[in-house]
Amino acid sequence: MSIQVKNINHVYNKGLPDETAALVDISFEIIDGEFVGIIGHTGSGKSTLLQHLNGLLKPDDGQIIVGDTDITASGASMLEIRRKVGLVFQYPEYQLFEETVAADVAFGPKNLGLTQEEIDDRVRTAIELVGLDYDDIKDKSPFDLSGGQKRRVAIAGVIAMRPEVLILDEPTAGLDPQAHQDVLSMVRKIHEGDTSIIILVSHNMNDIAQLSDRVLVMDEGRMVMNGTPKEVFSRGDELEAMGLDLPDVTCLMRDLRSRGLNVPTDIFTEYEAEQAICKVIKGQEEKA
């Protein structure tokens, strides 16, 4: 499974006074097994791009090929595309609607024409994969759950479709620190499972830096950077000019460096920071 996006453009409200170019000549490729982070400030075109990847929007021109299917071709089967590419929107818990958790998660698979047995199996597996206890939670009303649990149930509903590509739009927004960590470990687990490609959109640069193999940066409808987290976050000045943050550790290292300390600025984890600071201080002690 791979995704190829070739020169797509999308203009909103074409021909009207408020015509806006939402996507401008976007091209990139995602290979099998990759974890890709997408960043960009609000209005940069991230959400428009995601909606193209599972066929909710069609580009004005250009081509998107998922696996061996051209999803932009006329007559492309939307059901087939949505089965391959699962999209979890922001605040997906607002889309829960069934009376029980199990019924909510089963909603998607039911539309695939599977046997009841197969549906039940998928529901159980999906609920367990998002880190919830199936027997404990299946008959509960989704509305009696905590915010973090609701979100995981909503994600289970998409996973139960067994997509090969999973797109998550701000999956940790508004969660408390514990629920945030739970959702991150869940995403890691899903990536280790059958889902070959994960695309994560987030404003949280710590999460993006630590999870992604590659980071795509959107600005005003254009893709302005495409590289490893180290490559992208080493261009801190450019990111700041676009109104984007850096991972907290990277910020700290930049501050230390601007004060004359010889520390690297392309690191993201506390552990790396600790090592780097120790090294510098020990070095100073030796000089002294």
């Binding site: 907290d248 700290l252 501050d255 230390l256 004060r259 004359g260 300390l261 600071i277 510098v280 201080i281």
Partner: peptide
Amino acid sequence: EEELVEAVC
């Protein structure tokens, strides 16, 4: 963060 940077420097 400022305090940490200051202390390390």
